[in-house]
């Protein structure tokens, strides 16, 4: 059986440098050996040791579980220690990550859009080309009612309890009020009698 795929780890920004090289001492001439520090390991060090987050907080930021975060952290420290002690160079690359993009709102057409390419800051709306755009935080959304515009239903597979689907909440995170099972999205197909 193949293992469960890794969750994508959220990394807020790419690192400012792509690695470190050893110098002086007994560092041999020529190309030194390398340690590959994954981007998620870099992010864990940034959160835990630079920003002083605890593992619970850092896990929430990176969208992984607390035990996973602790595992990534110990791996990161082992790699850094290896590089320091044996005089290897550190290359920061790889890892199962995504760079979290920011949302923008266009005042011209009212649409929301994000910018997946972190190095470019958008100057005009990607849809209508209007210059009046502002950064937008979905957390303080002033008009959540607009999200209710579709009428999906969450259903309990055990007892048939139904409730209206709430946008940006996964059905399986909701519990049935009658029997406590996890809910599922109701199939839109007409019901068949079996």
């Amino acid at each position: 059986m193949s293992p469960r795929p890794k969750r994508l780890r959220r990394v807020s920004n790419p690192p400012v440098i792509s690695g470190f090289k050893p110098y002086g001492g007994l560092a041999k001439a020529g190309k030194p050996q390398s340690v590959f520090l994954h981007l998620e390991e870099y992010e864990v060090l940034r959160l835990c040791d630079y920003e002083n987050f605890n593992h619970h907080e850092a896990a929430r930021v990176m969208n992984v579980s607390r035990p996973t975060l602790t595992r990534i952290y110990s791996k990161a420290r082992a790699k850094i220690a290896d590089a320091l002690v044996t005089g290897k160079q550190i290359i920061i690359e790889g890892g199962k990550v995504y760079f979290d993009s920011e949302w923008y709102k266009c005042n011209g057409c009212g649409c929301l859009f994000n910018q997946p390419e972190k190095s470019v800051t958008p100057e005009k709306c990607t849809l209508c080309g209007d210059n009046s755009i502002v950064t937008y935080d979905p957390v303080d959304d002033p008009a959540p009612d607009a999200r209710r515009s579709f009428s999906d239903i969450c259903v309990c597979p055990a007892c048939g309890y139904e409730k209206r689907h709430e946008h940006s909440r996964r059905c399986r995170d909701e519990r049935c009020l009658v029997c406590g099972s996890r809910l599922m999205r109701k199939n839109n197909l007409p019901a068949t009698d079996i």
């Binding site: 969208n63 995504y98 760079f99 009212g110 649409c111 997946p116 849809l127």
Partner: peptide
Amino acid sequence: KKIISGEFGVNIKPLLDSLKIQMVAIREP
């Protein structure tokens, strides 16, 4: 390279960010 829709669910943004696909949300049914 760009997707235009009304809303995107919670699982979508990490996937699209890692694929570098842009999302545009228009809340006008």
